[in-house]
Amino acid sequence: MPNTVVEINNLVKRYKELIALDNFSLKINEGEVFGLLGPNGSGKTTTINCMLSLLAYDKGEIKLFGEKMTPNKREIKSKIGIVSQNVAVFDELTVYENVEYFCGLYIKDKKLRKQYVDEALEFVDIMDFKKFYPKKLSGGLLRRLNIACGIAHKPELIIFDEPTVAVDPQSRNKILEGIEELNKKGATIIYTSHYMEEVEQLCNHILIMDKGKKIAEGTSDELKGMIKNTESVVVNVRHLKDNAIEDIKKLHHVYDVKYMNNILTIKCSGGKHNITHVAEYFEQSNLDYDRIYSELPTLNDVFLEITGKELRDKE
């Protein structure tokens, strides 16, 4: 049975009248890539800050590596690496000096520290920029520096708090690949994001939260299995007959049909050949369409179905 690295029980955090965490609980096992998914303001970062004892909480218990976490637990802190949402580096230090400085807060031995710093810079692929000052780096490189500062000391538990916000797709992929590699090397990962695709790609256990509460938890498939929707058939069609929507609703496994901006979305629950049935209907009804395709449910669908709202604002 894997060791529990993080255990949070009934955590309550209030900001005056606002309840940021409402009896929130979670458990993370060693070696997991644990995704904390939720819209902005759902309590992800608050959870992380409470976990690190940076933020005081009103009620509940937090155990890291089997021990109760307090601000004085240096031994526990030495096993944790954080990659915060905001880039946490000093503008007056070069790339190399920044990583060395933060690594030096964990590793006393100078020789070992140098080795770790070099490895971290290689890992995030910014060795070529080691003499650059942060202000000279692009957004993506800055994020990679932020990661290097958080992982250089080779922590057992690494917390990534929205590390890909405002990052170009190329850098984002590099970051995600790096996180996978860190996990393969044995680190337990906590990954918070409101990008469901990233969480789905990366995490083997996902917790969806909203308004400080856990709303669902499990693997990606388990979460998708919790909702009615199993497949959405999407048809790009310019003209639809008056009674078409009602006819389609009558098709087997179909439970919801929406037509907007020339896009017909047919939601199905169960069944294996829903797209074939829809295509047959269009052919039999002599209806022209530009494109037809099938979409499997996403975590956004899970979130939408449970909370009635989108996981993130339309961008």
Partner: peptide, 13 residues
């Protein structure tokens, strides 16, 4: 500061 959070979360006295 964000860097302060990193320092605070570290084991340094």
């Amino acid at each position: 500061s964000a860097a302060g959070a990193r320092v605070d979360a570290s084991p340094v006295s």
